[in-house]
Design a protein around this nucleic acid. Structure first.
Length: 547
RNA sequence: GGUCCCGUAGCUCAGUUGGAUAGAGCACAGGUUUCCUAAACCUGGGGCCAUAGGUUCGAAUCCUAUCGGGAUCACCA
């Protein structure tokens, strides 16, 4: 938006001055508002190449540049050779008019039109309940999917799971042990690596309710029944928890189908054909060293079972074959080691690894009044995501899990989250929206209605212009959050937007200031309201109409 | 030991591609309401950007080393 008005004059002036060096003219937002609205260091970039003083080059540029004086108030030189640009209020009021007339789609883009994106997240196997780390994964994945949708991409939300293998058998054995302990033998031996969580006892209770003692005998058939029961129970809980956070994934992809449909075999065949898999010690190895990694890895064990790498690679191949152009994986930091293997495998199969975007988030710690709350698996006293949702609700959980950069450890302050007051940062954003709704309620009571005849140029107050500036930044922040895979960028932006609004609200009355001005301010309020609502919606947080 | 993430105000964290005087929230001290929601607004103190070198017009940001915290490194998933 800014660029089109300012970039072309700069390009023109450079060619007019016969400067044809290959440099990008970069504009940035100065931190210090007295430096104007935009700033460029082009003169400093050229200084070295032209062997001239930066300030001299800057002077030549501003002497020669031609621009629309109606929209740009001034262009001047500062510091070591920065060129600062200040837009006129008219520029901003026109920009607001433009947004207002385009309506609630402000910030949406069609950059992703026709591009299919698969976002895979959560992907927890049905052996237990979701905890906070999974919650972070889920919120990040869901928000990134929302961001891509806003950018116009065709998005599929996917959950990958495995309901076969050792972990599931382990689940079945754990449930069986609790079943026996509760039914006929309190001393029945619990498996060494079993799942200790209390939920296993819950499952066993329900198993007893439905089957009484029909599954007492320790045989494969019963264990299979129990495994299936456990799987359904866990999946039911997981989906319910996700539902509470408004997370819906349309595809649940079963790892097992990669085997049953022969995809695993296909991949092995391709690797062998390309001569990057070899037999050694009775196992099949993938020659990752040929692809620049430090170690070769086993993909099929000597027992004939594949290691996790093989289905992971086959799964990514499958996603490409299903027609996705971009694959996004949301992983916790514990999965970091698998990434290079999978990417190398994907590349070996002839797909572009750059199209696989892996976002790895760090862990979550739960603290209360500065002390860490343990979430140990062993003790079985897990603090689950459901517990947290019970205590503070989805909006707070989502905001807290999204308000930090994904690559940093996240400290979840339970005391702060519980706080139902102005200390809680999520309410600051929601309150801005509720206040706006309230203004419109009052406007309606007073019979002030936004109609087509709006004089945007009446908005000249400093806080009005600042709010417009903040609104104009929305599309850029959406795009940045999307490209970086950082929901936090949007969360921070919304806090700043809320702040700009609250200041405006404090300084400028919207109603009872004369009809024309009221209507202009209502238009500004309207744009602020739907921008705030859209932003919150992308974060998966509700925009309350009153608080 | 190898790889990855982190180290910025008392606490939790931002800091765009290297830019001008390093920011926010909370906490702390003080102020604002006959007026559309005070869950708001305003003012103030607070910093060796872990440490040491290097790259350059210019480094919290890039490079190297060191220290500290976390993750990971299987024919476990």
């Amino acid at each position: 938006m800014y660029d089109e008005i300012i970039k072309i004059p700069f390009q023109n002036v450079l060619s007019k001055l016969n400067i044809h060096e290959d440099v990008d003219i970069i504009f940035e937002y100065p931190k210090n508002p007295s430096h104007g609205d935009l700033s460029t260091n082009i003169a400093m970039q050229l200084a070295g190449k032209l062997k001239k003083q930066p300030r001299q080059i800057a002077q030549e540029i501003i002497n020669t540049i031609e621009y629309d004086k109606d929209l740009i108030e001034k262009i001047d030189i500062a510091g070591a050779g920065f060129i600062n640009i200040k837009f006129s209020n008219k520029f901003y009021t026109l920009a607001l008019k433009n947004i207002y007339e385009n309506g609630e789609n402000f910030g949406k883009s069609n950059k992703g039109k026709g591009i299919r994106v698969n976002v895979e997240y959560v992907s927890v196997n049905p052996t237990g309940l979701l905890h906070l780390g999974h919650g972070r994964n889920a919120c990040i994945g869901d928000t990134i999917a929302n961001l891509y949708e806003w950018m116009g991409y065709d998005v599929t939300r996917e959950y990958y799971f495995n309901n076969a293998g050792n972990q599931m058998n382990n689940l079945a054995k754990s449930i069986y042990a609790r079943y026996r302990q509760q039914l006929d033998n309190p001393d029945f031996l619990f498996p060494v690596d079993g799942y200790h969580g209390d939920y296993i006892k819950e499952i066993a209770d329900e198993l007893i309710n439905e089957n009484s003692n029909k599954l007492l005998e320790d045989n494969d058939e019963n264990l299979t029944t129990i495994r299936k029961f456990g799987e359904n129970w866990c999946f039911g809980k997981i989906k319910k928890t996700l539902e509470r956070m408004s997370i819906h994934q349309e595809v649940y992809y079963n790892e097992d189908s990669l085997y049953s449909e022969g995809k695993i075999k296909d991949v092995i065949g391709e690797f062998k054909e390309k001569d990057i898999a070899y037999e050694k010690d009775g196992a099949l190895w993938l020659a990752l060293t040929k692809m620049g990694l430090t170690d070769d890895r086993v993909i099929v064990k000597s027992t004939g079972e594949p290691t996790y790498r093989l289905p992971d690679i086959a799964y990514h191949r499958e996603k490409f074959l299903r027609g996705f152009d971009i694959l996004i994986d949301i992983f916790g930091s514990d999965h970091i080691a698998t990434v290079p293997d999978v990417l190398a495998g994907v590349k070996a199969l002839g797909f572009d690894p750059d199209k696989v975007k892996v976002y790895i988030h760090q862990f979550v710690t739960l603290t209360e009044n500065g002390e860490q709350i343990k979430m140990s698996k062993r003790t079985g006293k897990n603090y689950t995501l459901d517990d947290l949702l019970d205590e503070v609700g989805s909006d707070v959980v989502r905001f807290f899990l999204l308000m930090r950069g994904i690559s940093t450890h996240l400290e979840f302050d339970l005391a702060l989250a519980r706080e139902q007051s102005e200390k809680n940062p999520v309410f600051y954003l929601q309150y801005a929206h509720a206040r706006l709704c309230s203004v419109f309620d009052n406007a309606e009571l007073k019979g002030v209605i936004l109609n087509g005849d709006i004089d945007f140029h009446l908005l000249q107050h400093e806080t009005e212009i600042k709010l417009i500036k903040q609104l104009l930044n929305f599309p850029g922040f959406i795009e940045s959050a999307c490209n970086k895979g950082e929901p936090q960028v949007l969360a921070d932006y919304l806090r700043e937007l809320a702040s700009a609004f609250h200041v405006f609200y404090h300084e400028c009355r919207i109603l009872d200031v004369g009809e024309k001005l009221s209507i202009a301010r209502l238009a500004l309020a309207k744009v602020t309201m739907f921008t705030m609502k859209n932003g919150l919606t992308i974060l998966g947080i509700s925009a309350p109409t009153r608080m």
